[in-house]
Design a protein around this nucleic acid. Sequence first.
DNA 1: ATGTCACGCTGGGCGTGA
Length: 259
Amino acid sequence: MRLITWNVNSLKARWPRVPEVLEAHAPDVVCLQETKLAADAFPHAALAEVGYSAVEASEGRWNGVALLVRDGLEVTDVVRDLPGGPVPEEARWIEATVDGVRVASVYVPNGREVVSEWYPRKLDFLAAMRDRLAVLCADGPTVVAGDFNVAPEDRDVWDMAAFPEGSTHVTAPERAGLAAIVALGMVDAQRAVLPDGEAFTWWDYRGGAFHRGHGLRIDLAYVAGLGVTSVTVDRTARRNNEAGDKPSDHAPLVVDLAR
DNA sequence: ATGTCACGCTGGGCGTGA
């Protein structure tokens, strides 16, 4: 199974780039985040034209997650919203069984600042996710992929000095939230095939961050009950294309899994 | 260089979020 996770930063604004990525990689399933669409605006018909169906959890202006599934693969048992999660009004989680694998697309809350009211909610979300994944992993092959808004280790950050005390994405409690997922037996797919070195997936739009290599590894795929054969970051999708269609600030993570 | 995007509301600049 080939799986992609990609925070598109508006599916509507990113539309010309989405079929490009589908054609380039021919994934079986795509976990999207930040679709930023109402359910009735989701581009089901346009996706059908390029051979994909979708299930989505949509909110409107903010957030929004989806699973795109290649035609011919069975999709069952869709669950929208993270059971026990702290922000049920926000569209940050969708899971379904795709071709026999339980797949979840997640958009973890940003957290903003450690001193803000949003930070403890982010930690609560990570804890609820761990509890849900414990249930799913006990049931069969499981993948959770998305924008975790946490860099697992210092080497997943271009410069730790850019994240002084009070900054989110790098704190010990956030990283403990990821470690608790690993403690379930789930594997960080990218690190499984790239033990050393940096492998960023996000670069700020501002300041020429992409060109300067100022990135973070915050788009992650955790896997249980499946082997990982290859993981790549599609940096082409982070660049401007010939038609001038703008990129997301996140690059797609392309993950090949073996049963 | 906090230097960019994308959204809604409104009809183009501001507030919000990342």
